[in-house]
């Protein structure tokens, strides 16, 4: 479902003396349907960079990034947008929403965008919010005023609103209490059971052990310093 082939990534900082920084070289990754692969490696090793390459918000210098048969590194914007609507979900660490939009609508939106009926999308949103212990009285309010942990749970609910065949999870259990962490791990388990291919970053070792089938250490793709 997800295949990275020989991917490399550079940043050129034009306004800082044109410094060129090579951050990833020769990355390979393959994730089958129903499989969860955890990216590991020290902070700064390139875990989030790899996730963004998969999602298409980072460009690559070379290589292929296949998600559901679409090469994210080459496809025109329109195809990547369709891929993100229907196939590829992404739970980032930050909730980005239009202010003043009620939480229930925020969570239902990805399902609506993927073509679900309003009623079905809202039912799914209610179910997820309830499972993630967001009090019902908060549903009509915008999540912009919620606590960090609540925002994160709303973000997770959004990510699971549509049954994406491929999912990227960036620290989905960070800053959650034990009960909510268990809910998130259940959601991940259910997504795997229905055949979703999942790439995740989990600093939480126990959570990683519970849902990940394999670990890939991204420091293997970190270029050595020049001359080394």
């Amino acid at each position: 479902m997800i295949h990275l082939e020989n991917v490399s990534k550079n940043f050129t900082l034009h306004n800082q003396g044109g410094a060129a920084i090579e951050v990833i070289r020769g990355a390979f990754l393959s994730v089958a349907p129903g499989e969860c692969v955890a990216l590991t490696g020290a902070s700064g090793a390139g875990k989030s960079t790899l996730m963004r390459i998969l999602y298409g918000n980072y460009l690559t210098a070379s290589g292929r990034v296949l998600v559901g048969g679409v090469d994210v590194a080459q496809a025109p914007p329109r195809e990547i947008l369709a891929l993100r609507r229907e196939v590829l979900g992404y739970v980032s660490q930050f909730l980005r929403v239009v202010p003043r939009v009620p939480t229930l609508e925020v969570v239902a939106e990805p399902a609506l965008a993927a073509g679900a009926e309003v009623q079905a999308a809202q039912d799914r949103a209610r179910e997820l919010l309830a499972r993630l212990n967001i009090p019902q009285r908060l549903w009509p309010l915008s999540p912009t005023t919620f606590s960090g942990g609540e925002q994160q749970r709303v973000n997770i609910a959004r990510g699971f609103a549509h049954p994406y065949p491929a999912l990227l999870l960036d620290e989905p259990t960070a800053s959650l209490d034990a009960a909510n962490r268990a809910v998130v791990l259940d959601l991940i388990g259910e997504a795997k059971a229905r055949g979703a291919a999942i790439v995740g970053i989990f600093h939480d070792v126990e959570a990683r052990a519970q849902v990940a089938d394999r670990e890939v250490d991204v420091s293997a793709f970190t270029p050595q310093a020049a001359g080394a």
């Binding site: 980072y58 460009l59 947008l81």
Partner: peptide, 8 residues
């Protein structure tokens, strides 16, 4: 893509 131009 908007997030690509803004993030990278």
């Amino acid at each position: 893509l908007t997030d690509q131009v803004l993030d990278d």
